[in-house]
Deep mutational scan, measured.
Amino acid sequence: MLDDRARMEAAKKEKVEQILAEFQLQEEDLKKVMRRMQKEMDRGLRLETHEEASVKMLPTYVRSTPEGSEVGDFLSLDLGGTNFRVMLVKVGEGEEGQWSVKTKHQMYSIPEDAMTGTAEMLFDYISECISDFLDKHQMKHKKLPLGFTFSFPVRHEDIDKGILLNWTKGFKASGAEGNNVVGLLRDAIKRRGDFEMDVVAMVNDTVATMISCYYEDHQCEVGMIVGTGCNACYMEEMQNVELVEGDEGRMCVNTEWGAFGDSGELDEFLLEYDRLVDESSANPGQQLYEKLIGGKYMGELVRLVLLRLVDENLLFHGEASEQLRTRGAFETRFVSQVESDTGDRKQIYNILSTLGLRPSTTDCDIVRRACESVSTRAAHMCSAGLAGVINRMRESRSEDVMRITVGVDGSVYKLHPSFKERFHASVRRLTPSCEITFIESEEGSGRGAALVSAVACKKACMLGQ
């Protein structure tokens, strides 16, 4: 009897593995994704193909990295998701002549009506938060230079001027797309009239992360975010950046690689679950690469896999709870928690219980395998993109072996128990001629924006502006 049951459990697990095998990517698959990513990057950089390229390769006008001589107080704003952060950054000489960066910050959550109302409502709310922060720190009387981390696709015309191309991540505030974001912020500050600010720089969160990590390690020339969304930036040779005049030196390019796949480059790798996630998203047909990796989508992918296993009578005796059938019910943090389970399955059992399920031991094991399959594919897909960037940098610099540091931020990278190990191992397999160091950014977005502002202020002083 026991043997029969054991055989049935083994057969069930084997069927589960057959279904989950769809998520496995072979090294040849990853090399294919990497080569296609490089081709799209090239198209994004070139003037004649930029418009139709899915990977936009947006110039950021960040050319210099901090040298350690900029000092002063800077205000930093960070808008990239449902939370908005205001930070005071003091850049100065530390002990023994070292450079020191001290920060104080406060988080504000953005109400739904500000995210989806008008641009005026959104930026009025942001300036209200700045006003509140300055009151708390008794700094209303000071006109501070301000660095703005704005983590949406922007076409820069200068370091302090950028046109919002399109909202992502659930934002829909009308009247912002096609307009200068810094102008919208300046107008809102003017409307309030109770404080003055000098907006000197606007950067993407990947750029802010790279600059913040450069402060720790001067070989950091790539910034990457794996959180709600997924994106990367890197220092490109100016001669390859056709959208900006000049051939000397390097400029940081914001790849906006989340949109890779929007022209069909990933079609052969998309599964039924991916198509369902895409169809029910706020932007169907867009940001397809990001939807395979980002935390906004990972939990939902797992939920759809679990429903398939229920329908195949391989999980929960073929019956799903009402909660499990509800879109968004299986949160991405559950994926991390399930994979963090120590082996007694308590954590998995508790999560499934909150979803109205009474799982068996085998159910718990199957749910864990589903989570591992989805998150491992995410790590491997992400590795193909980064390997594409790094191999490109090595080739354009004609280096036999390139040493490089990548600064990384984002909740999936930082909080998932195995993502970074799987990701690092896969990147290294795909970049055999590179020695890569990964560092995690601390308060990256805010500190990085302030350091970019410090560079901009120093330049302005040198130019006598």
Score class of each variant (00 low, 15 high):
328 G>L: 11
307 L>G: 13
37 M>K: 04
182 V>C: 10
287 Q>T: 04
271 L>T: 08
235 M>A: 03
81 G>L: 01
313 N>S: 12
368 R>G: 08
346 K>W: 09
225 I>D: 02
358 R>G: 09
341 D>C: 08
392 R>S: 10
235 M>P: 12
55 V>L: 08
84 F>I: 05
221 E>L: 15
248 E>G: 11
460 A>V: 15
70 E>G: 09
100 S>P: 09
32 K>D: 14
88 L>G: 07
386 L>Y: 02
328 G>I: 14
32 K>Y: 05
212 S>Q: 09
431 T>D: 09
48 E>I: 14
8 M>L: 09
253 V>F: 03
430 L>Q: 14
72 G>Y: 01
337 Q>D: 13
9 E>D: 13
203 V>T: 01
5 R>F: 10
65 T>P: 15
309 L>Q: 15
300 E>I: 12
439 I>G: 09
263 S>F: 09
327 R>S: 10
245 E>G: 13
340 S>K: 08
142 K>E: 07
431 T>L: 10
259 A>T: 07
6 A>E: 02
28 E>N: 10
235 M>E: 04
416 H>G: 01
85 R>V: 02
351 I>Y: 11
158 D>Y: 02
100 S>F: 04
152 F>H: 02
449 A>N: 08
42 D>A: 11
347 Q>L: 12
408 V>G: 06
180 N>D: 11
448 G>M: 02
76 S>P: 03
416 H>T: 12
121 M>G: 10
75 L>W: 02
417 P>C: 12
22 E>L: 07
399 E>D: 07
255 T>L: 07
406 V>G: 00
99 W>T: 15
332 T>S: 14
294 G>F: 02
187 D>R: 03
208 A>M: 08
319 E>I: 12
381 M>T: 05
49 T>K: 12
344 D>T: 04
272 E>M: 06
27 E>F: 11
156 H>Y: 02
246 G>Y: 01
430 L>H: 08
345 R>E: 11
229 G>I: 05
256 E>G: 05
450 A>P: 01
152 F>R: 01
72 G>K: 05
463 L>T: 12
437 T>I: 10
24 Q>E: 01
175 G>E: 02
418 S>D: 11
337 Q>I: 08
234 Y>Q: 02
68 G>M: 14
427 V>E: 01
293 I>M: 08
215 Y>G: 15
426 S>G: 13
250 R>A: 15
174 S>L: 02
88 L>K: 12
382 C>V: 13
135 D>G: 05
173 A>Q: 02
452 V>N: 04
231 N>D: 07
301 L>S: 10
3 D>W: 14
381 M>L: 12
116 T>K: 07
301 L>E: 04
132 D>N: 09
443 E>A: 06
100 S>T: 08
120 E>H: 07
420 K>W: 05
207 V>P: 00
8 M>D: 05
342 T>W: 07
358 R>P: 04
230 C>H: 00
378 A>F: 03
340 S>G: 08
214 Y>G: 15
153 P>C: 01
443 E>D: 08
74 F>W: 05
161 K>P: 01
134 L>E: 02
369 R>G: 08
